[in-house]
Design a protein around this nucleic acid. Sequence first.
RNA 1: GCAGCUGUAGCUCAGUUGGUUAGAGCGCCGGUCUGUGGAACCGGAGGUCGGUGGUUCGAGCCCACCCAGCUGUACCA
Length: 546
Amino acid sequence: MAKDKPTKLRARMPRGFADRGPGELVPTRAMLETIRKVYELYGFEALETPFIEYTDALGKFLPDQDRPNEGVFSFQDDDEQWLSLRYDLTAPLARHVAENFDKLPKPFRSYRAGWVFRNEKPGPGRFRQFMQFDADTVGAPTVAADAEICMMMADTLEALGLAGQFVIKVNNRKVLDGVLEAIGLGGDENAGRRLTVLRAIDKFDKVGISGVRDLLGAGRWENPEAKSGDFTKGAGLASSEVDLVLKFINASPQMTGRDSEYLTREQFDEWMATLPEHERGQFLYDERAGWAGSYVNYKTCDMLERAFGSNAKAAEGIKELREIGNLSYFAGYRTDRIRIDPSVVRGLEYYTGPVFEAELTFEVKDEKGRPVRFGSVGGGGRYDGLVGRFRGEAVPATGFSIGVSRLASALSYLNTDAAPEFGPVVVVVMDRDQTAHYMGLVGTLRQAGIRAEMYLGNPKNLGNQFKYADRRNSPCVVIQGSDERANGQVQIKDLIEGAKAAAAITDNAEWRESRPAQFACTEGELVEKVRELLDHHGVPHGAALG
RNA sequence: GCAGCUGUAGCUCAGUUGGUUAGAGCGCCGGUCUGUGGAACCGGAGGUCGGUGGUUCGAGCCCACCCAGCUGUACCA
């Protein structure tokens, strides 16, 4: 065999996964830190659980198969027990609480950030590994715990600079269950159809009211007008039942923007007159702001009450929603931040009460000018049954999860002018036999808290070393040849200033000759001069590096 | 899973009715240049034309199947 090329191993990464460079890691780290601070302020404490749990602890095992549910990365331990990579942070928390129940203070308030894994088809903004940042209160049955979670989420998103660009939507599974009961879908035998109905409601955002109508009835075509494309089989409800469900989804004052909650004094008084006496005290008119607190939430609950209040389960849920609305209102959260929205369904399995969803309300365009909708960047709710699976008794719990990766990408669209990440100061090598001395210069800078390195590549060409520094986005390079060394001096070249100066120079000879933005100083002044230069360009060093 | 679209160099893409040794720009590496980033000039590396089979004297091009990617849809505890 002559010189056959060795078969190259193709470097590739499994789809649905991603490498992340400094451009993503640095802002994400800052974001996590912001979230953590808010959670801590609310009195939650840190907790970390492993990536891997016993599959049954995660809650899903197909009954007829000896394999765990697809969608979960699973494998067998050497004792043949099934293990899985966690697909959210809630089930592991439930396991932790159940396992340490007697040791933990109750209510137990904890937060945790971490990677979760889902073996599903990846898509734009959907990965098979992504990060969540959760906060949960375990052992508190009160609706105040749910309301608090909603408020904390609103605070968190505001701390991230998203004020006015999000809404926390709230619904209640009890109301949903009541509605389903009302259309005769109660009981275990209707579990399948219930699911279909819930999914149809969940699609309200995507397919609109007519789409939901189709999905609740016979079914929906991908292209409704042409009746072409994929056909999704519907729930097969009778038209009166469909109407009832639609009435539920629509049980919210029609809002165009936020205007409907800004009432004139006259409108406010008019509205107050419609309220029962004992309810009126909850609402005050704010002359300065011209708004009436939880008016929209109140109206929503009102409409739900009228339509479904006769069902006991729904009535209970509506009462809880009302309470969340009121608690938020008294805490100063208007309905543009925490809004009751009956179309929110959320995680179809383990939620038992209030459910929440954080949605970003702004739109941006991608590179091709097409609108990008971020939609939900987090969600949660009450799951009173999850911990109880490990114990004889029900343990109430409520929590919220932020989709860190998705939120980070949304934020990156907002902060398009994010400052570029600066590289280290590069000490170039002019004389190979002076490596020790160059390393000494580097060490001096490092001791002063300045990121610095000596060029470790082939030092033959000085130009290459500048190119390297340029590519690292270094603020400056330090140069010392034999001339400088003889005088105990170094040259400091300001690459940022130099780049600006370069724009005016077209001739290479002139470029080299002029040595833009370069100055000499003694070795003793090195730290001081570099610091000045870094400060001048706003490059962090010392304590600012964090 | 289903449907549509797309697969040619690291990237963006040419490649004629099927015809010799598959090209360009950008990028990358090296040199001009062992004391200066950009620009310029010169040189170089880099290709199983997504894969397999078929039709043909001859396939990057035609046919079949497969694979991958994108988009939508379904599922998403």
